[in-house]
Amino acid sequence: MIQILDIHKRFGEQEVLRGVSLNVPRGEIMVIIGGSGAGKTVLLKHLIGLVRPDQGRIFVEGVDICRLRRWELKETRKKFGMLFQDAALFDSLTAAENVAFPIREHTRFSDAEIMDRVQTLLAEVGLHGIEDKYPSELSGGMRKRVGLARAMALEPQIVLFDEPTTGLDPIMSDVINELILNTQKKFGITFFIISHDVKGALKIAHRIAMLYEGRIVEEGTPEEIASSSNPLVRQFLSGSSEGPIHVI
């Protein structure tokens, strides 16, 4: 259960979030859509305490993330799995070592057990035979998938994905969407996903919220979003440059 209450955040002169409130019930998939630069990544980073709000509160399983001490925050973070927009893999470790990293840090499995688990995780995101490659030797989409495997490594209760399917081909996107759906069904994980992939979002989400100019302008089930009369949402879903959202 994630509760976001009236979050405000500014960087210097720029007001990025202007009062975001959102509820994500436990075990549901929430997908955030919105234009580039809308503040989606900034919002996501608030949930795991990487960015602190200027105003407002965030509750994760009833705990106020913004008021935690350093070591309490560390304990809370073990429940999370996070994928960064640019994957943020450790470039001095191989793909397998990247996925193994959180397992090594927080469990006492033997090397063989860890390697077994790493193989399974990588296979789930469609990666074979790249265990010993370094991030710089992988394609963008492969890096993203290694990042996905790393985020899932500790069987987290809450998963934060920043654009899990961006940069993947349509088939691989669907594989990842299926993976998200299946893990959600199997383990009842709470997903908080940022996506530009409207089709995929409509397929996997329990709820979709649209962020525009630092506020949530629409929130609802995929059906409600698909039939929304909000001109901002309609323009975004149709992907048209004509409408109330002016990009240039």
Binding site: K45, I48, L50, K74, E75, R77, K78, F80, M82, F84, D86, A88, L89, F90, D91, S92, F101, P102, E105, H106
Partner: peptide, 21 residues
């Protein structure tokens, strides 16, 4: 240079999200 690169490519943030100081 190594730590600086890790900072700007969000690898240090990633460490923190994995609960490693």
């Amino acid at each position: 240079a190594k730590l600086g690169t890790m900072r700007v490519t969000e690898q240090i943030d990633a460490l923190q999200t994995m609960a490693v100081d």
